[in-house]
Design a protein around this nucleic acid. Sequence first.
RNA 1: GCCCCCAUAGCUUAAUGGAUAAAGCAACUGCCUUCUAAGCAGUUGAUCCAGGUUCGAUUCCUGGUGGGGGUACCA
Length: 529
Amino acid sequence: MEIKKLEDEARELLRKEFGSQAEGFFFTQPPPHINADLSSGFALSAAKKLGKNPSEISDKISDILSPIADCEKTGGFLNFKLKKSFFPKFLDSFSKNGYFSDPENSKTKINLEFVSANPTGPMHLASGSGASLGDSLARIFSALGYKVHKEYYINNVGNQVKMLGLSLKARFLGKEVPQEGYHGEYLKEIAASLPKEAENWPDEKFGRFAMEKIIDSQKKDMADFNVNFDLWFEESSLHERNLPAQTLEILKSKNMAYEKDGAVWLGLADSGCDDKDRVLVKSGGINTYFLNDLAYHRDKFSRGFDKVIDIWGADHHGYIARMKAGLEALGYPPESFTVIIHQLVSLKKEGETVKMSKRAGEFVTLAQLISEAGTDACRFFFTMRSPKTHLVFDIDLAKKKSNENPVFYVQYVHARICSIFENALQKGLLDLKPDWENYNLNEDERKLILKVLYMEKSVLQAAKELSPHHIPTYLTELAGLFHSFYDKHKVADEENKQSSAVRLAIMSAVRLAIKRGLDMIGVGAPERM
RNA sequence: GCCCCCAUAGCUUAAUGGAUAAAGCAACUGCCUUCUAAGCAGUUGAUCCAGGUUCGAUUCCUGGUGGGGGUACCA
């Protein structure tokens, strides 16, 4: 990552003058009206701490960094122009595989759990939102060199399975589905696929049958959505290994758990970790979901992950304090467990906001959405938004006017550049070597290269904030620059081999940036559109 | 009641405390004999309110207003 290298170099040089304050130095992208390659507000921000005036600091920096770039003061800001030799060096470096990868990161093993929808019905919009977020984050972390493991938790034990079985049985027998059962149409279809001898089945077998069918369809949905998990973890495997009971023993041995009113509680209120104590085992002797969840997360840590990240919908945010506190009680440092909350998706259909509830049976499934709008458009649409935004998904817009989705604007760049290279091949321009020393980049060429250079900022920011939306934002900006460039400048031009060679090198980098960016959000880069 | 999230253009959304707030859609005006018009160039248009911190606030803090979510011996 070349900006990072430049910053490291700069800090090294600045350390002699500014000591540890130099660590706060970094480059930013200059605003559009400033004609520069890199900017820094360091002189302004460090002035107070250093006890010097910004102008004085700027002069020093300008001197010190002159081996790297030419510096100019504008107000309190420093604006740099990179040396000519930087550009071919950067393009070459960018073209290498693993450009964003840092060997240091490969030491960190990350477990990312997301979606984990209940196996009681088809996936719907919220699952799509969680899947886009989780999978994109995993891809971004991988690109940065981290070891990432994607996991899906299947809650295949408990009362909901029983209810599912009873609901299926009722459908099978043509009877009324229980009030608190599952009323969706999908159980009718599953009932139709039951064998005849099912009339003699015990209730549990109906539950298992329904769940298997549903899990299969969920796996298919995820595959269709370009999301592939490393592990589909079944809750039942926790119980087979007696892990919840072991977890409870550990908590008891640490004097964190106590009995009251016939139930077992985890003491959290006294420590201030949570606002009240929470039940681990109900008075009937049944584990709460909380205890099973603690056991599950203990299992994740025992598999050797340094960082465990969960992605939950906003309706579970009240659960965070409890989980964090519980894991801390089990001895895991708080920073090793992170929960990302993504806001709920509401649905707009024919101008009205539709409430989604599985039990009411009224929802738009992910499968429907994929078949109507396409995986690429859906994933781009979901990933464009920050997880914090309360997304209103307009289903009619997604269906009817899918070509308004910016994903096509970005993909079109890839297709167009592929076309340019085909054209260049026909004209025999592909073997030309750019003569960088004798070529002066025009403003548009320079801007385009710089935009590719700045891609690392977006990738790093997405990873740091656990927010992949910086990638689509970046890609849309890069696409804008490209389309404008394309319209203005001919790339494969037999009349001008010198510029052709340089521009083809630039196009190659732009195409790669688009390809890598789309790949980070699980979207395809078509060669033709 | 208490806790969490959000409020930017007509709509959907961007903007590590920085410089003239950025896109898409919608509306309007132009541009295909030239590497794909799923495109380009241009016009109109925005930071909920009141204080505070700061050289500098859309961004941080406090208090409002409005929306969403949570406050289970449910899963």
